[in-house]
Design a protein around this nucleic acid. Structure first.
Lengths: 109, 109
DNA sequence: GTTATTCATCGCAATATTGCAATAAATCGA
DNA sequence: TCGATTTATTGCAATATTGCGATGAATAAC
């Protein structure tokens, strides 16, 4: 029914999925890459960089904000976006719980 | 329009997004964790473990297969699923291209 | 053959996501 | 104050995803 049964899974499973889902769109990957490339806060040039309309970019930004991966500081008439390093640490730790276990698996057909 | 503009992004961006998207559902995380926990191929006990109907589990398995993260070997009347280690290496390398860059960022508001 | 088991697929309904144009809200400069 | 600029929000259409019951296809046991 298009409704994920989140309550049927553990908090950790939901956390892994939520972070992964936030990263799971090329536009959001492109946003993150641009944030990294500028090596500092960026202020609204995203719409020029991405092949998407302003409304769509704003929506992807709010998805990333919802996951906590970026934060926006109001700076006069524009907004300064940057990575939330603390949350990224949390994201990496969460994903690594799964990834480390996967890396340890050796037996396979 | 519900249609991701994949052609507007780089192959790398699409690859990162595709892997992340495949992991981006708690049921699929649970499947991967079960595959890890059993430390070997598992054959159809997934439906007993997950709080989902058989048809739904099958669909999630096919999503993971589409991303190449697992493979299934027919074993008589049942099927043996296991992690595709080679693809996981590729997945880790792909994600790390983004993650490493993010970890290197220091300047932030 | 017949039956049971296992898994995939089809078809459906409900919800989510993606994308955009239009509009609103907020701030800055004149 | 009045535009100009920047970002968020709203409303809409199209497609995707999630979930399930029912049905198929394949194999094993008899």
């Amino acid at each position: 029914m298009g409704l994920t049964k989140t309550e049927a899974f553990t908090d950790e499973q939901n956390a892994v999925a939520a972070f992964a889902k936030a990263i799971g769109h090329p536009a959001r990957v492109a946003i993150l890459e641009h944030l990294v490339r500028t090596e500092s806060c960026i202020c609204g040039d995203l719409v020029d960089v991405l092949p998407l309309a302003q409304a769509t970019v704003s929506q992807h930004l709010s998805e990333l904000k919802k996951a906590g991966l970026i934060k926006g500081n109001i700076q006069g008439t524009s907004i300064c976006y940057c990575l939330d390093k603390d949350q990224w640490e949390r994201c990496f730790r969460t994903l690594d719980q799964l990834f480390a276990r996967i890396k340890r698996v050796t037996k396979c057909c």
